[in-house]
Simulated assay, not measured.
Amino acid sequence: MTTGNGPDDGDETPAPGTPGGPGQFSEEEIAAVTGPGPDDAELDGVEAAAIEEDSDDNENVPDLQSSFEKLVAKSRNLSPDRIRTVLESVLFVAERPLSVDELYQATGIPREPILQAMDQLSGIHREGISGVVLYEVAGGWQFRTDPHSAEYVRRYLRVKPQRLTRAAVETLAIIAYRQPVTRPELEDIRGVDCGAVLKALMDRKLVKILGKREEVGRPILYGTTREFLEFFALKDLSALPTLREFHELTQEHRDIVEKEAAPPAPPATGTVAALSDPNFTKRMEKNAAASEAALEELEEAMAAAERSQKVSASILESPPSPEKGDSEGPKPE
Rank of each mutant, 00 (worst) to 15 (best):
P7R: 08
D9R: 15
G17F: 09
T18N: 03
P22G: 07
P22Y: 06
G23K: 05
A32E: 13
A32T: 09
V33Q: 15
P36S: 05
A41R: 15
V46Q: 06
A50E: 14
P62S: 02
E69G: 09
L71S: 09
N77Y: 04
R84M: 10
F92S: 14
D101L: 09
G108S: 04
P110H: 12
L115T: 13
D119T: 11
L121E: 04
S130D: 02
L134E: 11
W141H: 08
E151S: 03
R155E: 07
L157S: 02
R158D: 11
K160W: 00
K160M: 06
Q162A: 09
R166P: 02
L172A: 07
A176H: 00
R183A: 03
P184R: 01
I189T: 13
C194T: 03
A196G: 03
P219A: 01
L221C: 00
T224A: 01
R226L: 00
F228M: 00
L229R: 04
E230K: 06
T242Y: 02
H247M: 07
Q251K: 15
E252Q: 10
R254D: 13
I256G: 13
P263V: 01
P264T: 03
T269M: 11
T269Y: 14
P278M: 01
F280I: 12
K282G: 07
K282I: 08
N287M: 09
A289P: 01
A290E: 01
E292Y: 06
E296C: 01
E297I: 00
A305G: 09
E306K: 14
S308K: 10
E317M: 12
E323Q: 09
K324F: 11
S327V: 15
P330N: 15
K331S: 04
